[in-house]
Design a protein around this nucleic acid. Structure first.
Lengths: 353, 353
DNA sequence: ATTAGCACTCGAATACAAAGAGTGCTAACA
DNA sequence: TGTTAGCACTCTTTGTATTCGAGTGCTAAT
């Protein structure tokens, strides 16, 4: 049996229709709605073949056909064409990503937001994983006699601060010396390197007190580095699941919510995925509890380096063509936004693998 | 007609039962489950009276009785007794609020988390509204030739930073002078005062360039102040709604979600509420779309000053006694935690209204 | 004043028939 | 030989009684 032109055309029509209506598609409706040039009976025969080939399934005898995962995969690989975004959509995206951009994280949050609004799905965006980010400077600031604020700034201008308490004496000058010494030693190192603990700061003035305060400060310093390393995951469009027929059953809705509510797990899954535009359909996700959702992720770049991911998650029945087009557009725009924010001097230097 | 002892006892039993089961309570089940010492027929008569008095309603003729808002209000005002928390609950709360506490915000987030887990409702916690918080110092730090990081620290050690771009020349020393001068002028002022724009910084060295950079920096400074002022709202336990019978209908679940998903609106509602433990039941909420939920909020304090709110939201049928006890316990513990973090030197000084 | 008894009500569950959408097969047709 | 009309068959959905049960409200007896 051969996947000839006509079978493809019929399969495509079924996918289109099912994606839109979420109802099994029958031969009669198909022949009425789409101009296929053959009778329902012929379509039925072809459908039967397509089912034998594994592209369609049958909820029960007297129902229409539903595309299988294999069909979606074929569609995504072979039949899908890139859509142009409407001017309105383009404007909305540009508005969210370019207007009033002061902070990286805010822009990424906006990206998740606009993606969910356009696709009507649950969308997410992850901030860059800072592993290869280099430290620019470190500063300790006194708040009161036992609270210190630590601030770490990376080359790209990302800031992480942390207030913590210590149980030893210190004064303004000591913190200044500490800041200076540690900046001297850590500047240019990546965060991962800093976290190994191999870097040891020594002081010209070998006052006991200096070493003491440093010892006291190190745990918080490490924790702050860890926090800085940690990618932040923004999610948006949770509400959309209430409009998706697949989740009109409260139990299914719950399962879906549980899946993405374990944020750390979900983040891990995202980090593990390959770069570029990746589509995994149903059981293609090795994860048992993702076996009837599809996940689309893409990476955005800064200075040609892959830094963050964004995407959508939803039922396998989704508008793969529209969604991938939107994601493409957003990642492109994000990347150019980040060229703007993230230091324009292209410090094209050593990037260690 | 008089709300005698027996009526109260029956009403209380009905409330207890309904809160637990979410099913209308009949006279027969009531007499079986609770030791009221009277027959179902008597209970029926009393129920009828209670209905006339507005404490019970009747979904339909042949159903049991359901407590009205008025009944819940009576229960909350008169019949409710404070519950002791189980040791397990106390331990969980202590664990979340005391262990590994380095940051205020994290502790508040944990408070929302543990509150939702214990009550099985949607819980929230709001960071202090910083209106009366005073500024401790202001610091501008260079990142690269046109990106500056601004950091504002309050007396209580809260930090807000912001990276932004400016279009004028500056160097390290200029930013140092700027930081020093502005700190001199703003130190001790509340954030609201700072936001009025009445404070004008002048420079000893009247170099043109200094004034120029300050002009460039002010908009971001103001925005950062605003951000600092903005209370952060943490929510937790959204998933719980899937286990609440009232929201087993997908449309109701959606309505509820929409209510709390407009985070800014919700935040505003919370800020507007009075201090202390406040319970509003159903239509007692002036808000139309909150007419069938109950909202319980409480405030926690730092140094005797009311600073933040937390609470739960859910169907009017909720365990008011358990919940208020838990909230009481958490706010007490939060307050003492914040005595710990927020500078132990009691700087009992001028607090301007 | 309390309670047993009983008729009555109304929603929920059950059963069953009819309708409708769709398939699969067969035979006729171009 | 590929295509199509026709028809029996399947299975869900919808509608309609019918029954069941929990519960009320009233009355009369205690």
């Amino acid at each position: 049996m051969d996947l000839n032109e006509r079978k493809l055309k019929i399969l495509q029509a079924i996918i289109r229709d099912y994606v839109q209506t979420a109802e099994p598609v029958g031969s009669r409706t198909l022949s009425k709605k789409y101009d296929l040039g053959v009778s329902p009976a012929t379509i039925r025969n072809e459908m039967s073949d397509l089912e034998d080939m594994g592209f369609l399934t049958h909820p029960h005898t007297s129902a229409g056909r539903v595309p299988s995962e294999k069909a979606y995969r074929l569609y995504v690989n072979e039949m899908m064409t890139k859509r142009d975004l409407s001017q309105d959509q383009k404007d909305r995206i540009a508005h969210e990503l370019y207007d009033n951009v002061t902070e990286l994280n805010q822009t990424i949050e906006h990206a998740a937001n606009v993606l969910s609004e356009i696709t009507n799905l649950m969308a997410f965006a992850m901030t860059p994983n800072e592993e290869h980010e280099t430290i620019k400077f470190i500063q300790f600031l006194p708040v009161d006699e036992n609270t210190i604020v630590l601030m770490i700034v990376s080359e790209d201008g990302k800031v992480q601060n942390n207030a913590f308490r210590v149980n030893c004496d210190y004064d303004d000058d000591m913190l200044k010396i500490l800041s200076k010494s540690m900046t001297y030693d850590y500047k240019g190192k990546t965060i991962s390197e800093a976290l190994t603990g191999d870097i040891i700061t020594t002081f010209n003035t070998d006052i006991e007190a200096m070493q003491n305060i440093q010892r006291n400060v190190m745990p918080s310093f490490m924790r702050t580095l860890e926090k800085m390393l940690d990618a932040h995951l923004y999610m948006d469009g949770l509400m959309n699941i209430f409009n998706i027929p697949e989740y009109s059953d409260i139990d299914r809705a719950k399962m879906f919510m549980e899946l993405i509510n374990k944020k750390d797990d979900f983040k891990k899954k995202l980090i593990e995925r390959d770069d570029g535009l990746i589509i995994t359909i149903g059981t293609e996700n090795q994860d048992e509890d993702m076996k009837d959702v599809s996940l689309i992720t893409a990476t955005y770049k800064v200075d040609g380096r892959t830094v963050g991911k964004l995407g959508v998650i939803g039922p396998t029945r989704m508008r793969y063509d529209n969604i991938t087009s939107v994601i493409d557009y957003i990642t492109d725009n994000l990347s150019s936004t980040f060229k703007m924010i993230g230091g324009d001097g292209p410090d094209d230097g050593d990037e260690d693998g």
